[in-house]
Design a binder for these strands. Structure first.
Length: 492
RNA sequence: GGCGCGGUACCCAAGUGGUAAGGGAGAGGUCUGCAAAACCUUUAUGCGCCGGUUCGAUCCCGGCCCGCGCCUCCA
């Protein structure tokens, strides 16, 4: 099955396959590690994860590179304010970022290169551009890319810049550029700033240059896919194309994927709007990492997502339904054999699911057949029309579902515990939802003991005691379910 | 101003030129010691508004209204 993905460059949905017949070579713009990641960042990373997971599910090996931008103006500024080296400053946020990615079940890219470790490659690229007369050095020691050297500029974002008058928007700092639209590939060091001593002068790389240099280093001068948030399309990706294609004379990435922004409660997320949330903020409020992941991915990547707390609750409940069903499959007893109707439903659900994802990663559409299957299977089980063979088939469908969605397997406790530990150390305990603390204070062993005691009480028909225990557990977020196959419990 | 996206039931949301997936919430019922879980039933003659094309439009075309994004650092 071949993925058909929208390509920003051509404006069309096109098949995406490895051009070398081996692995799909893809690059996605990673974080600038100057602060904790917010949910907007993670919406993009989650959808890139959906892409790579689906490719792998369809048997396409992936060679995925994601950069870490560990030097830029904000980093230099913040590190100086904190009285830290930029290395020490960025290390803490990079660590937090990788932890957050893991919490959201986002797979690690094959390569995660750091900008500061590839300065030499970037300098080479500037030199290459200089030789092609496409980059020039200013009096102040910065290097700029000459837009006039790349007539195709604007082909990704569909911008026609020919009408922009040179000099119209030149600001004071950039007075020595040849044209207002020329962008920096190398920034001269200001006194006291972190800088590298190189053949092209003392300074640091421009942001756009980093991605060009690192993507080509790991993936070659031409590769299959480049992804990022919609805001990066212009100017960041446009500049990458200009630099890279001018330097190599070859097409850079042939397929471009852009994930749309999310809104929070109907407005663009911004600190000034008071609707700005990091992943950690949400975990401390008691939302599960899996619910956050599902909420972020439930609306297809090409549509704006309105992120709301109602949506988070809804995602929590939807996941509960899936997990309850999964538990019913794995813990229930089923007679040997299978129900031909069930087999057909499972097969159909699987193919509808795969087809929806293959169709430009339509995650919303892909969910539907899975939930259909859950209902049909529950009904068949209730009616005793369900065999061990059906269980096995459906477990395989769910495994493929979770290979991309990654929400059924319950790994939620760990991220929450880590967020709590972090809050303690960061002095954020006031932001921890009180119920959350109580919940985590109760160990699995303690729950098991109480559940056991309740079962005994029930057998003795001491329902008062049994209900008392049930209420006590419920208050701490533990739900008990009595079924024919015994007692199950779960954390809310 | 330029480029682009969206307006589908109480909420989120998919979708197709031939008559509206799925999830969540609500209501009623079955089951249960009571619950929970699960299942059943139930909620859009209708898909922003007005025209047009068509045998037929939510889906195509035109206009209008509303919301949003990018165009500057930004996922």
């Amino acid at each position: 099955m071949t993925l058909r993905l929208f390509n920003t460059l051509t404006g069309q949905v096109e098949p995406l396959t490895p051009s070398d017949g081996q692995a799909l070579r893809m690059y996605s713009c990673g974080p600038t590690v100057y602060d904790y990641g917010h949910i907007g960042n993670f919406r993009t990373f989650v959808h890139v994860d959906v892409l790579r997971r689906f490719l792998r599910l369809t048997g396409t090996p992936v060679r995925h590179v994601m950069n870490i931008t560990d030097v830029d103006d904000r980093i230099i500024r913040n590190a100086a304010q904190a009285g830290m080296s930029i290395g020490a400053y960025t290390a803490q946020y990079e660590h937090a970022f990788l932890e957050d990615m893991a919490a959201l079940q986002i797979e690690r890219p094959e390569e995660i290169p750091h900008a500061t470790e590839h300065i030499a490659r970037m300098v080479e690229l500037v030199e290459r551009l200089a030789r092609a007369k496409a980059a020039y050095k200013t009096e102040a020691g910065s290097w700029y890319f000459r837009l006039a050297a790349f007539p195709e500029y604007g082909k990704l974002s569909k911008k026609d810049l020919s009408g922009i008058e040179d000099g119209a928007r030149v600001d004071v700092d950039e007075y020595d550029k040849d044209s207002a639209r020329d962008f920096a590939v190398w920034k001269a060091a200001k006194p006291g700033e972190t800088a590298w001593e190189t053949a092209i002068g003392r300074g640091r790389p421009g942001w756009h240059l980093e991605c060009s240099a690192m993507s080509m280093e790991y993936l070659g001068e031409s590769f299959d896919l480049h992804a990022g948030g919609e805001d990066l399309m212009f100017p960041h990706h446009e500049n990458e194309i200009a630099q890279s294609e001018t330097a190599t004379g070859k097409p850079f990435a042939r397929h471009w994927m852009h994930v749309r922004f999310l809104l929070v409660e109907g407005r663009k997320m911004a600190k000034s709007e008071g609707n700005f949330f990091t992943l950690r903020d949400l975990l401390l409020k008691g939302y599960k990492a899996s619910a956050i992941r599902l909420a972020l991915m439930s609306v297809p990547y090409r549509h704006q997502l309105n992120f709301t707390f109602d949506g988070l609750t809804e995602a929590t409940n939807a996941i509960d339904r899936l997990r309850t069903f999964h538990r019913r499959l794995t813990t229930g007893g089923y007679a040997p054999g299978e129900n031909p109707e069930m087999q057909e439903l499972a097969r159909k659900a699987h193919s509808d699911y795969m087809e929806a994802l293959a169709s430009d990663l339509n995650t919303a559409e892909a969910r539907a057949p899975i939930f259909d299957l859950v209902r049909a299977a529950n009904t068949a089980m209730d009616q005793g029309q369900f065999g061990a063979g059906d269980r096995d088939s459906i477990l395989r469908v769910l495994a493929d579902f979770d290979a991309v969605f990654a929400v059924i397997r319950d790994d939620d406790a760990e991220p929450t515990r880590r967020a709590l530990a972090w809050a303690e150390q960061a002095g954020r305990m006031d932001d921890v939802a009180p119920e959350l603390r109580e919940r985590l204070a109760l160990s699995d062993e303690a729950i098991e003991a109480l559940v056991g005691e309740r079962t005994s009480a029930k057998q003795e028909r001491n329902f008062a005691r049994a209900d008392q225990i049930r209420n006590e557990l419920a208050a701490k977020g533990v739900v008990i379910e009595d079924s024919k196959d015994g007692v199950r419990w779960k954390r809310k």
